[in-house]
Amino acid sequence: MNSAQIIQYCLSGITVGSIYAIVAIGFNIIYNTTGIINFAQGEFLIVGAMMAVSLTKVVPLPVAIGLAVVITTVLGGLVEVVFIRRVRDASVLRLIVITIGVSILIREAMLHIWDEKVRSLPYFTGTDVSTISVMGAHISPQVLWVLGVSAVIVTGLTLFFRFTLIGRAMRACADDRMAARLCGINDRWMVTLSFMLSAGIGAIAGCVISPVTQTQYDMGAPLAIKGFTVAILGGLGNSIAAIAAGLILGLLEVLMMSQFQAAYKEAVSIVVLLLILVFRPSGLFARRDLSSLRAF
């Protein structure tokens, strides 16, 4: 393998890895405020992308994406208000099962609204054949979009959680819900907000990858598994570590793909998931110096 090929593979690994990281951050935001894993996280990406695909027929691409993100955000809030909020002091098992049910309902609804066809958004800049060369490797401009948007999402979330009142209130809820409540924070609204936030960033991620990976109604579950693997790999609730873990998984997948059949690419994340669950369920980076970064 020459250096251009290595760069090619690495860039493609970083691209998918950053998407996994965003899915993982979506898991983490909800996990931190509610302590549950939202199995419907992958569906938010697909809903966002599908919605944008349909809207591009009516409005220009940026508007369509914006609208799709807003609609998905509202959907995320609705999921919380309708399904999660009514269950108080429920067992983890019960909440898991509810979010699995929600993911099935969303998926089946998508099947009936958008049928089984594979769709995709147009490339944001250029076409599917335009390339940019980076040190001898050829990449699609969409890859830069994916990387750029991921960076913006992560930076935006960091700023949001660190400097805005609502962001800090959400962190307070994550730390100690009762104490946050005593300080006058409306913890229920914060939980709804966390669902909206992770649905929203999920929709953005779904839109940016749609030109590259295409979008089909049942692609949410595999994405969710990978996002969960990344979330566990980084340590559940630790979003900074999730980015590192996302890149690790992305590169691992690409490495596997370069050496073995593409069919086994899917198995990588599951094997990693099982290994990490068995040997280090608290994550790769579960050390004290990093636990201070757990805030969002």
Binding site: I36, I37, V92, L93, I96, I225, F228, I232, A263, Y264, E266, A267, I270, V271, L273, L274, L277, V278, P281
Partner: peptide
Amino acid sequence: PVIRLKGHYLAMATLGFGLIIYR
């Protein structure tokens, strides 16, 4: 290994096992 896990972890690990068999 898996049965030592609890809650979400157990659910995801068994889900992962099912997916591997499917693959």
